[in-house]
């Protein structure tokens, strides 16, 4: 295909892309069903499921009672009996209510029964801050679940990946946790038509550069890209990696990049301490890429506090473009 007659790329929002993925999955496979609180007639807390209930009916788009633990338990049980539920939480924070089912059941059953069963379960978690929803509705808890063997944890940052990773998750025989950033739901981007999957466990190099590697997750990918463009005007050539999957982590892409640039900045919205960036940093420090580091590794993560309600403070507790910019400059220009 040459550039002249390239058809105009179809754009969808991140939320529409997810809805399209669920539509395709429901259409293709009668064992797929959607579960969650207010996902039917109401269309979901963030209107992601929309009118799918009209197309597939209440047997396949199932409103669950206001009990995350109960709903998750039904979803795990359904998965064990051969269905492929896609379970939506209203807010990722409510995973805390369902931890028993996620951590002790979904993640463990395959191992404890010697591989004789699997749990083809997908859970969708609207995550992150920026909506003024305060401490109990704004967290980024992907590292909690990323710590559990038996779970796969992904964080799509674009509409295209939101659809591709959801379809990959449905096809996966094991539980896959998808953290969708609430602020990204309205973001538009190119989304291919029809069925495709984005590989779980594979990061994407969003911008090639030679001076510093920025590994970012979720919405921070966009902040990192904005930073990289700003810094390029000053002659700093940053490589931006969208991690996409927290577990299993794409070691090769990150290490190759660090071997090339010799500098690493990790940017993520979850609380900095014991977060995703700690794992990325340790992975590099433990590898042969260590010998290529020409500056200390720097992490930018969420502040060590609950997300505040005050909109200014809410912005202040997660990394913003000026923070990333300053950190990258310091690393590249040898100030740390």
């Amino acid at each position: 295909m040459n550039a002249q007659n390239k058809p105009e790329l179809r754009e969808l929002s991140y939320a529409e892309a997810i809805r399209e993925a669920m539509d395709i999955a429901l259409e293709d496979d009668p064992s797929v069903l959607l579960m969650g609180e207010d996902i039917g007639v109401y269309g979901g807390a963030f209107q992601v499921t929309g009118d799918l209930v009209d197309k597939y009916g209440t047997d396949r788009v199932l409103d669950t009672p206001i009990s995350e633990l109960g709903g998750a338990g039904v979803a795990v049980g359904a998965a064990l009996t051969g269905l492929k539920p896609i379970f939506e939480f209203q807010f990722s924070d409510f995973a805390a209510l369902a931890m028993e089912q996620i951590v002790n059941q979904a993640a463990k059953v395959r191992f404890m029964l010697g591989g004789s069963v699997s749990v083809p379960l997908v859970m969708r978690f609207p995550a992150g801050s920026g909506t003024g929803a305060a401490a109990q509705h704004s967290q980024s808890i992907e590292a909690w679940l990323g710590h559990v063997p038996g779970l796969k944890v992904v964080q799509p940052s674009t509409p295209e990946d939101a659809k591709g990773l959801l379809l990959a998750a449905v096809a996966d025989p094991d539980p896959v946790m998808i953290f969708e950033h609430k602020i990204l739901y309205k973001m538009k981007g190119h989304v291919p038509e029809g069925y495709y999957t984005t590989p779980i466990g594979k990061a994407a190099v969003r911008r090639a550069g030679k001076d510093v590697t920025i590994v970012a997750t979720s919405i921070m990918v966009h902040k990192a890209m904005e930073t990289a463009e700003k810094l390029s005007a000053d002659g700093i050539d940053a490589e931006v990696i969208d991690l996409r999957t927290v577990r299993p982590m794409d070691r090769d892409t990150v290490l190759d990049s660090v071997r090339k640039t010799g500098r690493l900045v990790c940017v993520y919205e979850g609380v900095k301490t014991l977060g995703v960036g700690a794992e990325i940093s340790a992975m590099v420090a433990e590898s042969d890429a260590f010998d290529f580091l020409d500056a200390p590794i720097v992490r930018l993560g969420g502040a060590e506090c609950p997300i505040p309600y005050n909109p200014e403070l809410e912005k202040a507790v997660v990394p913003q473009v000026p923070d990333i910019s300053a950190a990258v400059r310091d690393v590249v220009q040898g100030r740390v």
């Binding site: 010998d291 290529f292 580091l293 500056a295 740390v336």
Partner: peptide, 24 residues
Amino acid sequence: ATPAARRLARDGGVTLAELRGTGP
């Protein structure tokens, strides 16, 4: 010295003590 500097010095047969560092 940074790990990268150590690696380059090792490969180049240079002892780090000969060098003046310009980093922090």
